[in-house]
Amino acid sequence: MKRKQWQGWGSGEQAEQHYLVQPRALAGGGDIRHVSEFLRVSGWRDKSKTGGPLLLESADRTVRVAYDPYVLPGGWTIHGRADGLNGEWAAHLGRQTPVEIVAGMTDALTQPRSAHAPNVWAPLEEQNWHARFEGEHYTATSPDRTTWMQYHHSPDGTAMWWTGARDKQGNGWTANFTPNTPMHLVQAFSTELAHPDPVMRPRGRVPHSAQIRTWSVSVTPSQLRAWQRARITAARAATWARNSARRPRPHTTARPHTPAGAARTRR
């Protein structure tokens, strides 16, 4: 295990031990506020009941994001209503899906779509994932073979996106998306799934797995708060910019032009 020292400690603060974990897909679930707080400041309504599972709804009421740890197998459910472009769709992500990967998809729900056609496989190819046909399925696998993304065709003719990560001890998670899930959302998910950067977990929240690499880091509470605020500030700024663009501008009536030196009539 390697050790790193983070600079910029606040005076009088007690540093806390955290770990950078790689690959991120095997880092464990993490803090769900990484997802929920971003959606809240992006204008989503909190529909959660006291003591119950998390439930957030988009401002236009077309998408719901839920996290329920109280049922088996538990985890995330993202549900979209049918609209003019897509039929009803849903995504189900296991409880141990890292929140940074979940956020790849949920953050994208708050952002305008790119003009470019989405390509789910492109982020995986950029990170040297191995893609192949397996019968009726098309699968991409990470270089360490712990993580996969598959377009899955069932014998009954139905199809879905199926993805997940698993170590040699059998620990991990799976997720699936209905075939009509908007492709830019699936691409946003695959981008974070394949991202090479590690993610951070506090001591005691690092999975016991022979497939992960960890680096011990010392972090102060103020550093953690600053990183969290930076993410929330970015969401708040983007929301303000979107709302400003939609807000109608007041119409002004141009005053009649009076030539310089012209006489004005009093009444």
Rank of each mutant, 00 (worst) to 15 (best):
A15I: 02
E16V: 03
H18W: 14
Y19C: 02
V21N: 02
G29Q: 10
R33M: 09
R33G: 07
L39Y: 09
R40H: 08
D46F: 12
T50E: 11
S58D: 04
A59R: 11
D60R: 02
R61H: 09
T62E: 10
V63M: 05
V65D: 01
V65Q: 03
Y67T: 00
P69I: 00
G74A: 15
G75T: 00
W76K: 03
I78V: 13
G84T: 11
G84D: 15
G84Q: 13
R95Y: 06
Q96N: 08
Q96H: 06
E100D: 11
V102P: 04
V102A: 02
A103V: 03
A103T: 05
G104Q: 08
A117P: 00
A117N: 02
P118A: 09
N119E: 03
V120Q: 12
P123C: 12
N128Q: 15
W129L: 08
H130F: 15
A131M: 13
R132K: 14
H137F: 00
D144N: 09
D144F: 05
T146D: 04
H152A: 11
G157R: 12
A159L: 08
T163I: 09
K168F: 05
G170R: 12
F177H: 07
H184A: 14
L185Q: 07
V186T: 13
V186L: 14
S190V: 07
E192S: 06
V199A: 08
R201I: 01
R201V: 04
R205N: 14
S209P: 01
I212L: 12
T214S: 12
S218G: 12
P221F: 09
Q228H: 09
I232K: 05
A237Y: 00
T239W: 11
A241E: 15
T252R: 10
T253F: 03
T258P: 00
G261S: 06
G261R: 04
A262P: 03
A263E: 09
